[in-house]
Design a protein around this nucleic acid. Structure first.
Length: 828
RNA sequence: GCUGGUGUAGCCCAAUCGGCAGAGGCAAUCGGCUUAAAACCGAUUCAGUGUGGGUUCGAAUCCCUCCACCAGCACCA
């Protein structure tokens, strides 16, 4: 049994050892050669590599090896996103220190990756939990702090009760924690923010300048940034000249349709507007009611709009009308000014509220004929709008804004949905925030020479009640770097997305001690030419990394505007209808597949089963097929080794038709595989093309024995097998190396140039032209390439399989597509 | 509800500019090899492209309608 299968275990171990001994994938900057930076998203060391990881790394490895064979100087590093909550949970559950748990996992997973035969430069391996890594992150934090890009404030944040920590907006999915799926609660807390909103416009603008990114991801980022243009202006409170309410609107043209205004319940002005104790009590009760709603309920678009009418009234500056003022749950404090003008005629939300509360509705845009809807948001001619009447919506927006500006009442304004990135985490296993609180000097950054602020090892982790660091006296109690007096350290740690926002830069010079990275190295390698990872980071990591890169650029550290030139978002690996995960118990382990079929087979299957951007349904039979294919290639090569190794002179010039046809297929395959990899990452069709060639190789071998000259036959078999081996290299590196060496080569297959198609071999002398009658195929013609249209027309009409279909009918017209088809259009 | 994507053979997937619906794999069936089976080798079957319409000599491909599934966003004024 075992003898039937190629000895993958032996081969894989052998070549992994050789690659390691030769340091084959170690790279250095080489200004004479064009570079290619190929990067896969580094993993969190959760324990074991599974087939979802394998897919990611197989794609990256294929590209890295392919680009290298194309002559590029390829940087292909790997490391560990090593800070994170699971390490702390392990500590709570099993009493293991997070550091020990993490490093043990790293050791195991590194061994797994090595057994996959991935072409990493392991000398560049990094782990983000290493103080020599996060030291630089702390330095940048201080520089950001000095420039106001990192700031501390008290605010309502997303609190995950299960993770016992704060989440950034990006880390909340439909009201639930992105990691543990618990319902997120609002909580007032003091914490650190990165001012990503300062880059909102640039992050958005560059979405149009990243042609190598999937449109899907760019759309998600654009939506997340959520730019909206409009105007801001003041509503005067009737009888209270000292009070003004600032509102934001994207539809200043509809201001004449304003029939009431609304404040967010927690708007600070509300307290000054209440006229009596009774009203104050009512407001309090309303606020209580609203705050009891959970995050999930708040997010439901169809939840009832609740509101409370205040006694205060406001004045519409456009027409002087005095209108009622409400507080309502559908206006959010966190967006715009926390206050709106309500125009039920042209806004559905206002329409809903107005009809519920019996408020008037004024139409300010002429409805199209037959309009039967509620609020109308389309274009049209302005009506009931004073000086705006007769204008289009777009014109009226401009004129209304100009009118506000001219009177000093307001201004044009752009708002973004994007909020600043909250980075404080009330947890232990992360990078400490390098800030101290001095009794005398206040908030002070740690001095540069004192970095890194190291995470203390000795700590009690209970999983409850604030940051574990707060209980470590030796950590908390420190000296003020400014005055030398007593100071307390900040006891929060940074969001782990901060580490992954710059690891690609650290890879450029991972052992550099003079800074985050060596300038020359980063200038040579950056940006990443091809980034590969899962779609789940479409907004999170990918937006943060873009932001952080721009910050570093503005600090004068890097020259690039964007970190990733091209992005490939690979689909998930699915089993039994769900993403592989421990909790679902549907994980296919890498170890199991590798031991049963070998690393090459596992990689081949995942590259072959579906195009990379699609989800891949795991299939036990499919992997058998991939394995069978490799065995087929192996067996053919070994059984024909004598013939394959007979020396043949130089280039093959086939004489027989069978040989010429076969050689053309060899070179067509080179062309197809190259195109498939370059054009759209269609690795599945590339594999199919190689399989087709292998099938044809078997056919040629069987039929050419007596009919083709032995020397010609041997030369062609050799050309075919060598081509197959070279093409297979990036997909299945171990078996390719072994076959290459057995064919008599001493150099690594990866030291070879990627094959290019011989134009002579591709030339065709004859083509099959299809003959259709009224669009239906009725015959075929074998003709010389580029045969004249007139000749094709005659041949088609005279073809014996075609003529019966034409005989009794009148030929109306004949469409000729050279080298393709002839379509005879007839009429009765 | 909005936006994007996908729908092709029993299954996973191809089809470049609108030009023969099928490259590859899986499964099934038959044959060869074998004392037999597995493995292996060879062959065969199977869809008219989610629905309905339109444009065209010709549509999986372009346009419109509807359906299903997936993903993202969802009181953002």
């Amino acid at each position: 049994m075992a003898s039937d299968r190629y000895p993958f275990q032996e081969i894989e171990a052998k070549w992994q050892r050789i690659w390691e001994d030769r340091k084959q994938f170690r790279v250095t900057e080489d200004p004479r050669r064009p570079k290619f930076y190929c990067l896969e998203m580094f993993p969190y060391p959760s324990g074991r590599i599974h087939m979802g990881h394998v897919r990611n790394y197989a794609i990256g490895d294929l590209l890295a090896r392919y680009k290298s064979m194309r002559g590029l100087n390829v940087l292909h590093p790997m490391g560990w996103d090593a800070f994170g909550l699971p390490a702390e949970n392990a500590a709570i559950e099993h009493g293991v220190h997070p550091a020990i748990w993490t490093y043990e996992n790293i050791d195991y997973m590194r061994a797994q990756l090595k057994k996959m035969g991935l072409s990493y430069d392991w000398d560049r391996e990094i782990a983000t939990c290493d103080p020599s890594y996060y030291k630089w992150e702390q330095l940048i934090f201080i520089k950001m702090f000095e420039r106001g890009l990192a700031y501390r404030r008290r605010s309502t944040v997303n609190w995950c009760p299960s993770c016992q920590t704060v989440l950034a907006n990006e880390q909340v999915e439909a009201g639930r924690c992105w990691r543990c799926d618990s319902e997120v609660m609002p909580r007032e807390i003091e914490g650190w923010f990165f001012k990503i909103t300062a880059y909102a416009e640039e992050l958005l603008a560059w979405c149009d300048r990243l042609p190598g990114w999937p449109e899907r991801v760019l759309t998600m980022q654009r939506n997340w940034i959520g730019k909206s243009e409009g105007a801001e202006f003041d509503l005067a409170v009737a009888g209270r000249p000292e009070l003004k309410i600032r509102v934001f609107t994207t539809r200043p043209d509809t201001a004449f349709g304003m029939t009431y205004a609304v404040l967010a319940p927690e708007h600070p002005l509300v307290d000054r507007l209440v006229a009596s104790d009774a009203e104050r009590a009512a407001v309090e009760a309303f606020r209580q009611e609203v705050s009891r709603e959970s995050e999930i309920e708040r997010l439901a678009a169809d939840r009832p709009k609740r509101g409370l009418r205040l006694t205060a009234r406001v004045v519409n500056p456009f027409n002087g009308a005095e209108i009622p003022l409400f507080i309502a749950n559908y206006v959010l404090m966190g967006y715009g000014t926390g206050a709106i003008m309500a125009v039920p005629g042209e806004d559905q939300r206002d329409w809903d509220f107005a009809t519920q509360h019996g408020l008037p509705i004024i139409e300010t845009v002429k409805r199209p004929d037959g309009w039967a809807g509620q609020a109308y948001t389309g274009d049209g001619v302005k009506i009931n709008s004073g000086f705006l009447d007769g204008l289009t919506v777009a014109e009226a927006k401009r004129r209304a804004t100009d009118w506000l500006v001219a009177r000093g009442l307001g201004e044009a304004k752009v708002n973004y949905r994007l909020r600043d990135w909250g980075i404080s985490r009330q947890r232990y296993w992360g990078a400490p925030i390098p800030i101290l609180y001095c009794d005398r000097c206040g908030m002070v950054p740690e001095a540069e020479e004192n970095l890194p602020v190291e995470l203390p090892r000795d700590v009690q982790i209970s999983g409850k009640g604030g940051s574990p660091l707060a209980n470590v006296a030796s950590f908390v109690n420190a000296r003020c770097p400014r005055c030398g007096g007593r100071a307390r350290r900040d006891t929060d740690t940074m969001d782990t997305f901060v580490e992954s926002s710059w690891y690609f830069l650290r890879y450029c010079s991972p052992r550099y001690e003079g800074g985050m990275f060596e300038r020359a190295a980063a200038e040579y390698w950056m940006p990443v030419d091809q980034y590969i990872g899962g779609i789940e980071h479409a907004v999170l990591h990918l937006l943060y990394a873009r932001f952080y890169t721009k910050v570093l650029r503005d600090l004068g550290l890097v020259k690039v505007d964007e970190p990733f030139t091209a992005l490939l978002s690979q689909g998930m690996v699915i089993k039994d209808g769900a993403k592989m995960s421990k909790s679902k118990g549907n994980v296919v382990s890498d170890d199991y597949i590798r031991e049963k079929y070998g690393a090459d087979t596992g990689r081949l299957f995942e590259l072959f089963a579906a195009p990379p951007e699609k989800d891949l349904e795991w299939n036990d039979q499919g992997i058998e097929g991939a394995f069978r294919f490799l065995n087929r290639v192996w067996r053919f090569t070994l059984t024909h080794l004598d013939e394959l190794r007979t020396p043949t002179p130089g280039r093959v010039v086939p004489v027989s038709d069978a040989a010429r046809t076969f050689r053309r297929l060899i070179h067509e395959t080179i062309q197809r595989v190259t195109d498939d990899i370059e054009r759209e990452f269609h690795f599945n069709t590339a594999v199919a093309a190689i399989m087709e060639l292998v099938n044809a190789l078997h056919g040629f071998e069987a039929t050419s024995a007596g009919t083709v000259e032995p020397a010609e036959r041997a030369a062609l078999l050799r050309e075919a097998v060598e081509t197959i081996t070279l093409l297979l290299g990036p997909f299945c590196p171990h078996i390719a190396e072994e076959l290459w060496s057995r064919l008599g080569h001493r150099e690594s297959v990866f030291a070879q140039r990627w094959p290019t198609a011989d134009p002579d071999a591709l030339k065709k002398t004859e083509v099959t032209v299809v003959v259709q009658v009224d669009g239906r195929v009725r015959g075929r013609l074998l003709v010389d390439v580029d045969a004249a249209e007139e000749r094709l027309r005659q041949l088609a009409l005279n073809d014996e399989r075609v003529s019966p279909w034409v005989a009794s009918r009148r030929v109306e017209k004949i469409v000729v597509v050279p080298n393709r088809l002839v379509n005879i259009v007839t009429r009765a």
